[in-house]
Every structure is written in structure tokens, then in C-alpha cells.
Nucleic acid binder design. Structure first.
Lengths: 217, 217
DNA sequence: TATGTTTTGTGATTTGTTTCACATTAACAA
DNA sequence: TTGTTAATGTGAAACAAATCACAAAACATA
């Protein structure tokens, strides 16, 4: 079984997102021109790497004038081809799901959560603005909005079942916030995000740093 | 400036967390023995890699009997040295912060959020169970619980200020959920988690997969 | 105790990624 | 028009990570 996880998405591609995020902010601040070192500075990589990454994806700048912010942004977004696919659904409205559904950054970045789902009838408040659908309406919504990507934020026990259901309904990309490895057909992309791991890695790094310092004492 | 980000935390270390998470679950399910291929299967890597990773961190198994789940777990946790440092604080109680503060997985993994903070007086409900402190009490809490790691979930404009303050108060590790690159002294570890990027990477991968398939038509 | 089997542990090899060094180009100034 | 400068773009080199192949060990069985 082959999954696209944090570990096998190309590093260069992950950095393109980094540049994209920064560019969105710079653009909204009215910065019209950027240089490889601008992006490098803002994302913590080297200028060479920025250029190499752009080179890999066929993005070119002006030999002396750097890059035009707006064009660069649209070139990256063209690369993403974001028009037809940025509608996503969110399954699981626990604490994390609720937070994600209200997270303001998504829409700024062109990620549109068209609907949220939960099995819990108590959470299914189909009011006007913040409605949560029952799983029975998944297929209908997926079809209506041609959704291809889903966010899974359900408890680990039900994650695989939900995943299977979504895949059978046409979902081809999954962002998985549950701590289980989802089994999916080869044509489905999975990205696992594990908040515990993110925090643990810092805890351990801090500890290791202490250890290294103490070697000098 | 050198940061420990998603990209420069050793891959092997990231995988150790993956194994740890799986082991916690296997252990609670009563599995007493695991093999490199058990862990490989459950985390989507190869058995050789599992062994190589353990080898790197000096963790050894039994030549024929694999690994004893409980011992392996405590060896990894000893590696983390989690006793003195697993108290963390959370700054910023917006949507994401609130979700993180209620996220049940943390405590299962030994991550203990000892206090949460927000500048907004409306959010500062210092009731018994779910209290949110004003920033003025940061130093007091950091000292009292010897906190070394903080989670930043504040809006991007204030992220750098909050970060500076935390570092000056003794914080040495930061999990940054805001989309800005924090400038920190070399002895501070930063892990940037960007939820937009995680979702975008899947959107793009799905698109690329479609593209590749269409080459065969 | 000897033998076959299973699984770990690791040197050697391959593959992938980042950095370096510099040729190339565009803008500007005199 | 011509030289100077400030950027990009990229092949080559250095580095890092993953895979392979197999030796070493431990257990089971006779």
C-alpha cells in the first residue's frame, strides 16, 4: 500500500505551499515585487532553494527584477489548478472538526468547506449558517459540489469506515486528523496530520537541545 | 537564522513519533509483542526502515522475538525523557486554540496543557475547570510548572510579539500554528504547523494524479 | 546438541535533496 | 553605447536518506 503522507510528498512541493502562503500575505500588503531572498527570508530556506524549486515547476522570474508578486501567485495557483477542486467537505464535528469548520484562514487561501457532517444527531443543527449534515446526505453533497477532497476529523475507531464510505462516493484526497493509517486504493491520496506528533517532536527537540548544551558544561 | 521546522526535524525522529502513537494503541489493545513489520504495516513504512530508525536511537529488539510492546514503548518514552517537560501552555484561545485546549488525544499521549492564555478579557473565564488566564500571569504559570514548551495559536499579527515574550520568560520550544515564520534565538526550537498547507497539498496531489491518469487515456 | 527458521541489525548501494559556484541576463548609469 | 551591478537559472558536488542484501542471533524441534 502506497500513501502520500507528510513523508512522501515532495519536499519541494511542500515548500511551494510555504511560498504561496507568504505570497498571499505579501500581495495583500501591497508588495508588488519579490526576490528569491525575500521568499527565502520569509520561509526560512535559502534563496538558491527557492529558485531551484521554482525551476522544478517551470516558474521563471526576471533576471534582474525578481518576480512580480501577483503573477508569481497566479502561476503557483495555476500549478494547483485550484478552480475546479477547492471545494472540500469535513466529516466529524468534535472539538477539532468544529474548530476547523470555523477556521478563518481556509477561505483566504481558497479552501472552501462546502459542508460538514457528523453522525451525532445532537450536533446535526441544520440551521442557515453553520449547518451540520447527517452522513446520509454525503453522496448528495459530494455530487452537487463535485467534491474530491475530504477532511476526516472523526474518532480513530470510525476513521477507516468513514474513509471507505468517502472513497466509494468519489472522494480522491483525504486529510486525516485521526491517528490511524487509512487503507485506501492507490488512486486516493492521504495526508496524515497528527497534532500530538507535532507537539511531541518539539518536546523531544527541546530535551535533546538541553542534552547537547550540557555536553559543554 | 536556523529553525527546526517540519523540514529539518530528522525524518527518522518524525517516524519515531509515528511508531510511538501506534504502540500506544497496540499496547492498550493488549498486544504484548510487536515486530518490525507490525510497525511498518501500521505506519506505512518498510520494516527495514523501522529497524534502522530504532538502531539510530539505540533501541534494540530480540533477534527472533521482535520487540516487547511495553518495553519498546518505555524505551521510546525514555528517549523523550518526558517527565520533566511534558507540561505545555497554550496561548491564543480563538477557534483553533479552544479546540486544541479540549483535544482529548493530548493527555493520552502525556501532553499536559497546564494553562491557556488570551488577551481578550471576554475569553478570560477563570472558572474552575476550563480557565483562560490573561497574559499578565504567563511568567507566574511558566515558573510554577517549569513549562518549557508553548503552543502559539494567536492571529498572525501578534505571533512574533507573543513569541518574543514567551522566549524571554524561559520557553524553549514552540509549536506555531500561525502562518508566520517566527524569529527566535538559536536555542529555541520552532515547529510550524500550517493547516492550510496540509489541505492544499492534498488538493494539488489529487489534481496531479488526475493529470497522470489522463496521460494513459 | 544439531539443524532449520525467523527475525533483527547493519554495511554497502542506490536514490533523492541541498548547496555551491558561476554563467547568463536585464536594468541602470555615465 | 558600453560597462557595472544585481539578480536569476542550473550543472556539478556534497550531503542525506532509503533500500537492499545478508550476517548474526535466538528460538523451536528433534
Amino acid at each position: 500500500m502506497k500513501q502520500i503522507t507528510k513523508h512522501n510528498i515532495r519536499n519541494s512541493l511542500r515548500r511551494i505551499f510555504l511560498y504561496h502562503g507568504l505570497l498571499v500575505r505579501l500581495n495583500s500588503m501591497g508588495v508588488t515585487r519579490v526576490f528569491s531572498y525575500t521568499l527565502a527570508e520569509g520561509t526560512g530556506v535559502t534563496p538558491e532553494q527557492v529558485r531551484k524549486d521554482f525551476s522544478e515547476y517551470g516558474i521563471r522570474g526576471n533576471r534582474r527584477g525578481g518576480y512580480i508578486t501577483a503573477s508569481l501567485l497566479s502561476e503557483i495557483e495555476a500549478l494547483f489548478n485550484r478552480d475546479w477542486i477547492s471545494n472540500v467537505i469535513l466529516v466529524g464535528m468534535g472539538n477539532l472538526g468544529q474548530a476547523l469548520s470555523k477556521y478563518g484562514q481556509f477561505i483566504k487561501r481558497g479552501i472552501n468547506i462546502v459542508a460538514t457532517f457528523d453522525v451525532d444527531p445532537y450536533k446535526q443543527k441544520v440551521r442557515a449558517e453553520n449547518c451540520v449534515y447527517p452522513p446520509g446526505r454525503l453522496q448528495e453533497i459530494i455530487d452537487r459540489f463535485s467534491v474530491k477532497v475530504a477532511i476526516i476529523a472523526v474518532p480513530d475507531i470510525s476513521a477507516q469506515d468513514v474513509c471507505n464510505e468517502l472513497v466509494s462516493m468519489g472522494i480522491r484526497g483525504i486529510v486525516n486528523f485521526s491517528p490511524v493509517l487509512l487503507k485506501v486504493p492507490v488512486y486516493v491520496v492521504v495526508n496524515n496530520v497528527n497534532l500530538c506528533d507535532e507537539i511531541e517532536s518539539v518536546i523531544l527537540s527541546v530535551y535533546r537541545m538541553k542534552e547537547e548544551q550540557s555536553l559543554f558544561l
